[in-house]
């Protein structure tokens, strides 16, 4: 069998690594972490096998959304340095393969979640995939400079899915954590966009710094930080968490706010000299991991 010569129209030469790359594995780390924290912070016991399955489905669903995003955005990826080596623009995989892989994986993750865990978590997972692919990628990303705000909502779903997987319900705490991740995305992303010389403009994507300028971007990231801080701290005064989460998040949110204010009022225009922006971006990543870690610690130790 192995000696059969090839002679046909087959062009797919993708390796298994290319399929992994299609899932956007770096993005998955945050998705898996917040989903797992939602699951662990929920006031209900879930069988470890079903808990593992829920987190696996969250990861597969998010990976499928990433694959479908790359399927649709192959033209954009091809003209940007950062993404030009992805499997589709690099020519290692054809678009149809990516589409089939993404749709198949999305359907599998939702079905498995529904059959093994519960219908509510499967429904939210389906909504999050459709939201990221249809609303963000296809509809709004190329139309509005607020695109990453909308994209942030898709990244905020996993905590609700994890919570729903454990409890079968959606309650105030996961909704507040959803809001926190949603509102965290603009300061996180725009602080990066200020000092990274991206080629989104060349690709026709209206990123805020390119469309509205640095000053507007600085103000906007600060305007999103204020409700983010309120949303992150709110669970404590509302009695939804204990002091471990409350005090820890209040301190971290205070630091976040100070860094955001620095960026908001900075007048540095040379990307190479933008220290405040780099500090805010680096801290924003640690911040999100830390507050979700505190959420679980509060449940475990309180």
């Amino acid at each position: 069998m192995a000696s059969q010569p090839f002679s046909g129209t087959q062009t797919t030469t993708a390796e298994w690594r290319d399929f992994v790359a299609l899932l956007k594995p770096r993005v998955l780390t945050l998705v898996v972490f917040t989903g797992l924290c939602g699951l662990l912070a929920a006031p209900a016991h879930i069988n470890p096998v079903l808990g593992f399955t829920a987190v696996l489905c969250i990861a597969l669903g998010a990976g499928a959304a990433g694959a479908l995003n790359q399927w649709y955005e192959a033209d954009i990826d091809a003209v940007m340095k950062r993404t030009a080596d992805r499997p589709l623009p690099a020519g290692r995989m054809d678009r149809q393969t990516a589409l089939h892989f993404g749709v198949g994986l999305a359907a599998f993750s939702v079905l498995l979640m529904g059959l093994a865990v519960n219908v509510l978590s499967a429904a939210i997972l389906a909504v999050s995939i459709l939201f990221y692919v249809v609303v963000y990628t296809i509809w709004l990303k190329r139309r509005t400079p607020q695109n990453i705000v909308i994209g942030g909502a898709a990244g905020a779903f996993p905590v609700m899915i994890g919570w729903a997987a454990a409890t079968g319900r959606v309650e105030m705490l996961p909704v507040l954590m959803f809001a926190t991740v949603f509102l965290w995305t603009p300061p996180h992303f725009w602080s990066l966009a200020l000092f990274i010389n991206s080629d989104y403009a060349r690709a026709g994507v209206p990123m805020l710094p390119a469309v509205a300028g640095q000053r507007v971007t600085r103000i906007q990231q600060l305007l999103y930080t204020l409700p983010m801080v309120a949303s992150a701290v709110a669970p404590w005064p509302l009695g939804l968490t204990g002091a471990i989460y409350g005090v820890g998040t209040a301190i971290l949110s205070g630091i976040f706010l100070l860094l955001s204010i620095r960026v908001g009022f900075s007048r540095v225009s040379d990307p190479a000299a933008m220290k405040a922006e780099r500090h805010l971006f680096a801290f924003s990543i640690a911040y999100l991991f830390a507050i979700f870690g505190l959420l679980v610690a509060d449940k475990v130790f309180a």
Binding site: P5, F6, S7, G8, T9, Q10, T13, A14, W16, F19
Partner: peptide, 24 residues
């Protein structure tokens, strides 16, 4: 129609095999 050279065929076979192993 694409006629592959022996080297290209060997490369495609190698990738197919690695995909098959991972799928299994």
């Amino acid at each position: 129609m694409i006629d592959y050279t022996p080297e290209q065929q060997a490369e495609i076979r190698r990738k197919q095999k690695s995909r098959a192993v991972v799928t299994a």
